[in-house]
Amino acid sequence: MNNLVKVGMADLNIAKCPEILTTLGLGSCVGIALFDSISKIGGLAHIMLPSSKQVKNNLNKAKFADTAIVELLNIMVNAGARKNNIVAKLAGGAQMFSFTKTNDIMRIGERNAVASREVLNSLSIPIIAEDTGGNYGRTIELDTSTGILLVKTIGYGVKQL
């Protein structure tokens, strides 16, 4: 398990083949996995909020969809990945509690997923797979030797994206 690179909440990191990038317990947060299949460089961000522009305390770039994706892309390109080769996979964005009131905090998962898609679209990075929504947590692993994103849940099975 020495080749496992952990990404925490509001955190991002990159890894090269044969390392595996992982983030545990995504709830309303969204995990954005980027992968260049030629250089076999992968990147993973665990974002908590849709936009750095709505929040005063925005120093941690990895916390927001808009700043985290740009930052992750830059680090990957600096490490030798080519932007044109990079594809994205998304997971998370669940609604963990089901209050009938549809207020902001309760819809944050959905808003995180929407913001992540918008940022990726604006950067012309294709989203080739996605497992978002629902009301359950996810642990994800990006295998940089294959680009496969493994999504594990409690009670909702395991998926390969």
């Binding site: 909440m9 317990g25 309303s28 947060c29 963990m96 905090i105 947590g137 409690i154």
Partner: peptide, 14 residues
């Protein structure tokens, strides 16, 4: 809700 600690904690953490 019964789920992963990280997933449940994402609600207050956010």
């Amino acid at each position: 809700t019964v789920d992963m600690a990280g997933a449940i904690l994402s609600v207050p953490a956010i």
